[in-house]
Design a protein around this nucleic acid. Structure first.
Length: 641
RNA sequence: GCCGACGUAGCUCAGCUGGUAGAGCGGUUGAUUUGUAAUCAACUGGUCACCCGUUCAAUUCGGGUCGUCGGCUCCA
């Protein structure tokens, strides 16, 4: 049987004899690359190389250099790890072991608690298994038989998974003495696996439900080549250096103090000045876009939170009540009810809408202790919040306006890695199906009209309405929710918010909740990681470090610094009795964008020797020229990647 | 909240099997007057996170609390 085999855009013919598998063909046609070819695709379906072709359809070979191939390699690695664990710890019960973006994991239930040292032992055993060259063999079984098979072995998790699969037959894969339930495909033999590493141990709930038992999860990864594996490990180490918690301390930006309590942020002077720059920009942009600013209190009567529904739906995230005289007061977890109260302070006309009210509102939420994470997940934070009260006919434009605003902010701050999600109605929520549908549709239409790529995050909306989330990506690829816009037709209902229409009758406005940064804390955290602490000039805490070479130039250096400061430039002079080299080193390590070196030559002609971060010595420049350059760069908010 | 690991000067870390702790950087002082990533020296830093227990003796061993880190769950 002659079949066309396609590999790397080249195709060749191969005559299959009866019972000959694709693997045999690969070994004959591509003896050089045979270990990188791990599977095949026939008619769009991925199959094992051990498949014996039954049609004359083209066969496309899948190598580990493709996404599918890499996934197969990693998935097979998780099976090999599972085999190793079963050999080492026979009482281990396996749950699930998929491949993920950075590698794979397997969830295991066993009596022994694994320690990091055990990873080496398991790796060693895996190495043995790869040397044994065990073949991966697929077997299709009626589901009842498969259930019986795993039941006998006491693999309760596999039985549970099987009992929920609607299919009549399932596939099992066996290598060596180990058999697992799996869709496949897999590498032909354990010998294909050469470059792998087990990374960490963690706890994970069975089926991701905290009511279930906690299993032990082992994370690992595998690559086609040693270089790629080493590259992965070094990239992780490099990423760790951009960690905002590390940089926050090194650059003296912020701290979180045990004495004060977890999740509460202290902004140091250098972090505070960055925040101030962000806030100034934020305010200016709001004014341009027709927003007004409001301020509201930090606590309010519990009754208000009952009316808003927060007490019912959000209680577990709120700090305990504060008893004041006869009443109970709550620290605010959100700003929305306050803005509603301002709205309701007078009768509003349809002509007043839309109203766009913004506030840098500091909120407090009781987050579970295990989830706190530097600036990215805290208990007290300032949202760059705004609420828009709009008429139904204004909804679409206003949502688009917010999306455009968000995009402008993200781009100005130079974020390249972010993802957009549309979150729909969650399990616990208020309001009617019609309302939810209308609101979700409004968001979807706005996304489409703005030509923004997005994914649907089913059931991830807020209790009062659906939302669009923008998630920013941190140094090691984790996503953190930043900007969000939420459509809310429930709070206006609960608070009986109205406006008088053209017809003289009362109508219900729709509320938009939105943040364009997220929170100052989280945004700052991702910003630090984004720039690895080397902020663009307009944000840099110290913009220019003035370095006199000897103390003879001290007076001139001070004068230059004063001139820079007078022009609104954040300049500091380093008058320590240190060598110039040491001062430059310190300024570089503090990631100061410009260093102005001043010796006798410069002092004589009113100039400075300019050194730029990452670029080195730019040569001598007249002071006025230097100042103009700085002001221009600050004004244009140039980003140096 | 759950699983696991960790918690020693301001920072980064050393301290084997129990005998009240060290280095480098930092800070202070003095000397050096220097041309693009660390000048030299002296001095100064610690209830070894906290609380109980075992022991003649605990930074070291055991238990608990708090905090941090990696995940899970949950979220801006």
């Amino acid at each position: 049987m002659d079949i066309t085999i396609v590999f790397d855009d080249a195709s060749s013919q191969y005559s299959f004899t009866d019972g000959e598998s694709i693997l045999t063909a690969v070994q004959k046609l591509f003896p050089q690359q045979k270990r990188s070819i791990v599977a095949a695709r026939i008619g769009g379906l991925l199959v094992d190389l051990t498949t014996i072709p039954s049609t004359t359809d083209d066969i496309q070979l899948v190598s580990t250099s493709s996404g599918d191939g890499l996934e197969i390699l990693r998935h097979s690695t998780s099976h090999i790890m599972a085999e190793a664990i079963k050999e080492l710890y026979p009482d281990a019960k396996l749950a699930i072991g998929p491949s993920i973006d950075s590698g794979f994991y397997y969830d295991i239930d066993m009596s022994k608690t694994l320690s990091p040292d055990d990873l080496g032992v398991i790796e060693q055993k895996m190495r043995e298994i790869t040397e044994r060259s065990e073949h991966f063999a697929r077997q299709d079984k009626p589901i009842a038989e498969a259930i019986e098979f795993f039941k006998e072995r006491g693999d309760q998790y596999k039985v549970e998974i099987l009992s929920e699969i609607p299919a009549t037959t399932v596939s099992l894969y066996t290598q060596g003495s180990f058999t697992d339930l799996c869709r496949g495909p897999h590498i032909p033999s354990t010998s294909y696996l050469k470059h792998f590493k087990l990374l960490s141990i963690a706890g994970a709930y069975w089926r991701g439900d905290e009511k279930n038992k906690m299993l032990q999860r082992i994370y690992g990864t595998a690559f086609p080549s040693k270089e790629e594996l080493v590259g992965f490990v070094t990239a992780r180490e490099e990423a760790a250096k951009r960690d905002h918690r590390k940089l926050g301390q090194q650059l003296d930006l912020f701290s979180i103090q045990e004495q004060a309590g977890p999740g509460l942020v202290f902004w140091h002077p250098k972090g505070a000045i960055v925040r101030k720059e962000i806030e100034d920009f934020w305010r200016a942009e709001h004014i341009k876009r027709g927003y007004e600013f409001v301020y509201s209190p930090h606590i309010a009567n519990l009754e208000l939170w009952k009316t808003s529904g927060h007490w019912g739906f959000y209680q577990q995230n709120m700090y305990s009540p504060i008893q004041v005289d006869e009443d109970q007061y709550m620290l605010k977890p959100m700003n929305c009810p306050f803005h509603i109260l301002i709205y309701k302070s007078q009768v509003r006309s349809y002509r007043d809408l839309p109203l766009r009210w913004a506030e840098l509102g500091t909120v407090y939420r009781y987050e579970k202790s295990g989830v706190l994470h530097g600036l990215l997940r805290v208990r007290g934070f300032t949202q760059d919040d705004a609420h828009l009260f709009v008429r139904p006919d204004q909804l679409n434009d206003e949502v688009k306006g917010v999306l455009d605003f968000t995009r402008h902010m993200i781009e100005t701050f130079g974020f390249k890695k972010y993802n957009i999600y549309l979150s729909t109605r969650p399990e616990h929520s208020v309001g009617t199906d019609e309302g939810w549908q209308m609101a979700t549709e409004a968001l979807r239409v706005a996304l489409e009209e703005m030509h923004l790529d997005y994914k649907v995050d089913a059931g991830e909306g807020v209790f009062y309405g659906p939302k669009i989330d923008v998630k920013l990506v941190d140094a090691i690829g984790r996503e953190w929710q930043g900007p969000t816009v939420q459509v809310d037709f429930n709070l206006p209902e609960r608070f009986d918010v109205t406006y008088v229409g053209e017809d003289g009758k009362e109508h219900r406005p729709i509320m938009l909740h939105r943040v364009v940064l997220g929170s100052m804390e989280r945004f700052f955290g991702t910003l630090i990681e984004q720039y690895a602490g080397a902020f663009p000039l307009w944000l840099a805490p110290v913009q220019v470090e003035v370095v006199p070479i000897t103390d003879v130039q001290e007076e001139y250096a001070r004068a230059i610094t004063a001139r820079l400061v007078e022009r609104g430039i954040r300049a500091k002079v380093d008058i320590r009795r240190e060598k110039m080299q040491a001062k430059i080193r310190d300024a570089e390590m503090q990631k100061v964008p410009y260093i102005a070196v001043i010796g006798a030559k410069e002092a004589a002609v009113d100039s400075v020797a300019v050194r730029m971060r990452h670029e080195g010595d730019l040569g001598v420049m007249a002071v006025d020229q230097f100042i103009e350059r700085l002001l221009e760069e600050i004004k244009s908010k140039v980003i140096f990647a």
